[in-house]
Design a protein around this nucleic acid. Structure first.
Lengths: 246, 246
DNA sequence: GAATTAATGTGTTAGTTTTACACATTAATT
DNA sequence: AATTAATGTGTAAAACTAACACATTAATTC
């Protein structure tokens, strides 16, 4: 919705107006999906944004979204947006929250279901056709169009929490990664520094890393070992009980 | 939606048909809110359900819900449903997930935003006017109407997780409670037994319990002390960093 | 090829948290 | 007065977390 309306649809502004009148005149509720797409590059957490074309938000950045089609499931809509924008299917995607303030969208009542997605930038270099589509360092994400800042903040906080309880962060890394990569990822997402030895000890003790007996290539220093994540083992071991703590 | 449609609206079946044709004919998406309302009574976790009137789900139980009005925010719709059904305002309410499978509702495309609510049954004895509205022991909740079983399971799992990280469970207890009450609550929600000494130690060490210097009344054994929860202190201390663990 | 650089790889200790576990005390009831 | 059914309390072992330093390796520079 918001995002996508501004993006593709607005190139022919007719369709925006159509949506607007449709929504306003009939007092119907329109439904959209917005995706917060995270990537990891140069040891920085990035988010994929596109320029808003809506007059009200001219020049501002917004998330990627589109209206949900009548016969389309919500998750399917989110996957469609991802596929359209990144060319990637088979990516991590998770519904986060639904925003429905009456006045959140200038075109009328548009309720949006938001999704968080994690994609591996290096693996599949994505063809960013639209040159108004860019990766932004999350540290510089401010003042987005619509209520997208709120949506982004919400997703980012969720990511920070989830990454501590599940190995989803690995979706942002190549299949083979070094422990340094992994730590850089956690440090970027959690915006904190960690002790290298304790970080390693922690991950080794979880015992989900497979030593593939390869080394980093082309690093200007002693190369580190590469690992894969043992998803199979993780799925079996998944813990349920964590204990009361607040 | 689902629930509420079947509930109040269906008494005059006209309105259901109106919704149905509206949704089907125009291919529009209707939006509803469903609430999973938890209570705690006789040391059992309960959920508030109502009988479905829809032919397809005759005799089955369903969650409480209603369509979102054009000028109504999502949270407002959830609060409205709660107020209508329980007479309570000022209750704990949290959005959980949005379900939008194309065929989840027989009347057409209805996307529903689900909420989890925790209310204190003893404090405000609620006037259950509708005699098809009942508290169900969550252990006996199976085979709900629509996709409500899925929605319920989802909310319950969320509650189990959240209660370990936040003091929301206290919304299910009276303002003054004994440590035994508290432990019974956790045991009911998490469906587990805990060591009484360690449970006490844990809560005392968190240091959020206020000893109000009162004792239980009318118990057929040695009465325990009563406590209040120090929300003020909790709000100040809230922890952010938990650490990687999966 | 020797020296330098910048990273990897590894262990120990102190402190904290979690778990497992048993007995004296109290108020109500018989 | 005796019984019952709960409350209230402490300790020791085990597991986990946090803090902290030095030898090793490969690439690069001189």
């Amino acid at each position: 919705m918001p995002a996508e309306v501004n993006v593709e649809k607005v190139k022919n502004i007719k369709s925006l107006l159509a949506i607007q009148s449709e929504v306003e005149s009939s007092n119907k509720i329109a439904l959209s999906v917005d995706c917060v797409i995270f990537g990891f590059d140069e040891n920085k957490l990035k988010v994929l944004l596109i320029r808003s074309d809506l007059k009200k938000y001219l020049g501002k950045w917004s998330l990627l979204g589109d209206l949900v089609s009548p016969g389309e499931d919500l998750d399917a809509a989110a996957y469609r947006i991802l596929k359209q924008r990144t060319g990637l299917s088979d990516v991590y995607l998770e519904q986060v929250h639904t925003f429905g303030s009456v006045n959140r969208h200038p075109a009328g009542r548009v309720v949006t279901v938001t999704y968080c997605s994690l994609i591996n930038i290096q693996h599949h270099k994505l063809n960013i056709l639209d040159n108004e589509l860019h990766w932004h360092d999350i540290k510089n994400v401010t003042d987005l169009a619509f209520d997208h800042q709120q949506i982004f903040d919400n997703c980012y906080r969720r990511l920070q929490k989830r990454i501590q309880e599940h190995p989803l962060g690995l979706n942002l890394l190549p299949k083979k990664f070094s422990l340094r990569d992994l730590q850089n990822l956690y440090e970027a997402i959690l915006d904190t520094k960690m002790d290298r030895r304790n970080f390693r000890k922690k991950f080794f003790s979880m015992d989900f890393l497979i030593d593939i007996d390869e080394m980093e290539q082309d690093v200007p220093h002693r190369p580190g070992k590469l690992y894969k994540f043992n998803y199979e083992k993780y799925e079996k071991k998944k813990k349920k009980w964590v204990g009361i703590d607040f």
